[in-house]
Simulated assay, not measured.
Amino acid sequence: MTMDTEYSSAMTGAAFMLYEFRQLAALKEQGMTDEEIRKKTIQENIFQHEKLSSLKRGLPSILRRINAIDDILLRTAAEGSLEDAKAVNLYAIMRTDRLFFEFMDEEIGDKLRMNEYSFEKRKLNQFFTVKAEQHEKIAGWTETTVSKLKQVYRRILIEAGYLPDQRSNELSHLLLAEYIKQHLADIGDANYIRAMGE
């Protein structure tokens, strides 16, 4: 499977959103098209969002994630355990967001493989500074956009299970099921297992 190659700041509107990801995975597994899912989600407000604008902002990102995974991972997202669904969602986020994949691979995966369990906020700042120096597109993002992305990245680390809370800098390994690791290796996506710290 191939990953998006363009850098994007779209994640400012859609963080981990595991509940929503699982809901859409179930609809996709039932055979619904993207348009049918979009219509049902908005008309019935299946996410129970108070503001329709936040629902519409996050929906395209979640649909992109759903379309980035195969049938086996789709079933896991919809019907699997919470931990397994978290791992599939994290994988889908990395598959659809190049910068986030690079962050996971270069910052989190590397640290965990070397048994380093400290992740300070300054490391996140350094990551974005280096990427802005290397890529014109990222350098063109506003300070507000970069600040929001940093918040989203940290929130994803918490919701995926890498950090216990906002105040902590103590990383933990993700509980990644053996069958998910094997499946990702089988489809040629071992680099994502690496990025998760395995």
Rank of each mutant, 00 (worst) to 15 (best):
E20P: 09
E106Q: 15
E106C: 02
I187K: 14
R194F: 14
R155A: 08
M1H: 02
E178F: 09
R154W: 12
A177N: 10
T96N: 09
L59N: 07
I193G: 11
F101T: 06
M3Q: 12
P164C: 01
G31L: 13
E107W: 00
M11V: 05
Q134G: 00
T5E: 15
Y7H: 11
F119P: 03
R98I: 00
E170F: 11
K40D: 03
K123M: 15
I72P: 01
L18P: 12
E107K: 08
G109Y: 08
M32Y: 13
T33Q: 03
A160R: 08
I108A: 02
H49C: 04
S168V: 09
N125L: 07
D189F: 09
M1L: 01
E143V: 05
K121T: 11
M3E: 12
M94P: 13
I46E: 04
Q182I: 12
T145D: 08
R155W: 02
E36N: 06
E50I: 05
D70A: 12
S172E: 10
A87N: 12
A92C: 07
L112V: 08
S118E: 14
E35P: 00
T96Q: 02
A10N: 09
K150H: 07
R65K: 07
E29G: 08
R113W: 03
S168P: 07
L112A: 02
T76D: 08
T144W: 01
A185N: 15
E120A: 13
A77P: 02
L174Q: 13
D165P: 03
